[in-house]
């Protein structure tokens, strides 16, 4: 039953996104040249075609979800009890937001040091508190990767404000 409700939510969300892309994003986001001999050659033709198909698909998913709910209800099936995993979802949300903080930190701190900090924090977030694991891994792995890219693959990695402290 839960998967049926999930489908309904997904169908509605996809429908809204598809309509938004068709009605606003394509007209605003795609530049078209003045004269086009054939409409199928226009830059907006292909994206529009894809989004029309997506709109149809979102309706299909929505109807499939509603149909499942109708059949299961007719058979007297109850929605199974569901306890939200608050702690787990909170951890995932922190990890997801952390990705953006990590990206932002790299723009001024380079890749290596923010990676060391992020690695330690992500390990901690997983519930691993043993410093004998956290410290060597969070320092060793980013450093080893930095040296690999620099010396073996010959790809220089940015060090940001820590430029003078590395090899």
């Amino acid at each position: 039953m839960r998967s049926a409700y999930k489908d309904v939510v997904l169908g509605i969300a996809l429908l809204a996104i598809s309509v938004f892309v068709l009605a606003w994003l394509i007209p605003v986001g795609i530049d078209s040249p003045g004269t086009i001999s054939n409409r199928a050659l226009a830059p907006a033709f292909w994206p529009r075609l894809i989004m029309i198909a997506m709109t149809a698909l979102s309706v299909v998913i929505l109807l499939q979800g509603l149909n499942r709910i109708r059949i299961l209800r007719a058979e007297g099936v109850e929605a199974e009890p569901h306890e939200p995993n608050i702690a787990g979802n909170l951890k995932t949300a922190i990890a997801a937001v952390g990705l953006f903080v990590f990206t932002w930190a790299m723009t001024w701190g380079g890749i290596v040091v923010p990676s060391m900090v992020a690695l330690a924090l992500y390990i901690l977030l997983h519930g691993e508190w043993r410093l004998t694991i956290i410290i060597p891994v969070s320092i060793g792995v980013p450093l080893a990767l930095y040296l690999f890219f620099l010396k073996v693959a010959l790809v220089p990695m940015p060090l940001g404000i820590f430029e003078n402290y590395f090899f």
């Binding site: 790299m106 992020a118 792995v141 693959a153």
Partner: peptide
Amino acid sequence: IPYSVLFPVVLVLCVYGAYA
């Protein structure tokens, strides 16, 4: 190898790979 270490290491590997 504990997943609590493995997955964050993979994340850092992803970052280096995407930048390269």
